[in-house]
Amino acid sequence: MSTAMPPLRPANGHAATLPAEKRDDIVVDCHIRELYYGSFKAVRDTEIPIRKNSITAFIGPSGCGKSTVLRCLNRMNDLVRGFRFEGHVRYRGRDIYAHGIDPVAVRRFIGMVFQQPNPFATSIFNNVAFGLRLNGFKGDRADKVEKALRAAALWDEVKDKLNKSGLSLSGGQQQRLCIARAIATEPEVLLMDEPCSALDPIATRRIEELMTELSQKFTIAIVTHNLQQAQRVADYTGFLYVDTTQGGRTGYLVEFNHSKHLFEDPQHPHTQQYIRGEFS
């Protein structure tokens, strides 16, 4: 097969911006040199290492390309016409944009939760079992579904109505259903694209707690426009900003650090201004 992968080796340290830390626990090593949609340069010079069992948040003003960067990590951008990419994204040391890599396979190991809750128009059970069927899982589906729903803190609310349509749930429940659907197959990495932006504060709180719990098992990358959320849940935070000097609106990474350092002691003036709320 063309996708036969080389044996596992430590990622070679493109993404090392943090001092005194092991580099071999980097699961996804993202290095975007340039990213275009057609002739529009959307992102440049963004290097983000995503570490095992941690939560990495991408923050920045709207239009800075943080969702675009996230969607690069499991090749969702392949669906966009005119998408072109310079650089590499290494998942466990293998470049997922290398020739011969199947994006479908990549997405099975790097799952995704979207901004809008997007359950399928089928029962709650079938929604969660979707990934199991996708992967041709032969074992006890009911058991896996229950575990995923428990992990997504949704089991108690839906255990009596697993045959009801997923669309009948409330917005917060739908989003937790989508999380359950994403984790049921136990991917290694979970990408979350503003998972709480369509939810009320209580539902948001529950999802945040959930993320913290899930980070024991999964590696999570999250895009958020909510600074407090990044501060509350993320171990690492990257700040992206828009560069308008060359005429376009090109996003780039300004600063990446432990959340604690980034929020308490931002180095770059842009980051300082953004955290102080001087622009959005």
């Binding site: 479908v104 099975r108 992967n135 041709g136 197959t185 136990e186 290694e188």
Partner: peptide
Amino acid sequence: ARAGEVTQAPS
């Protein structure tokens, strides 16, 4: 489950 026990590349 071990990682990769459920998640498989497309068969």
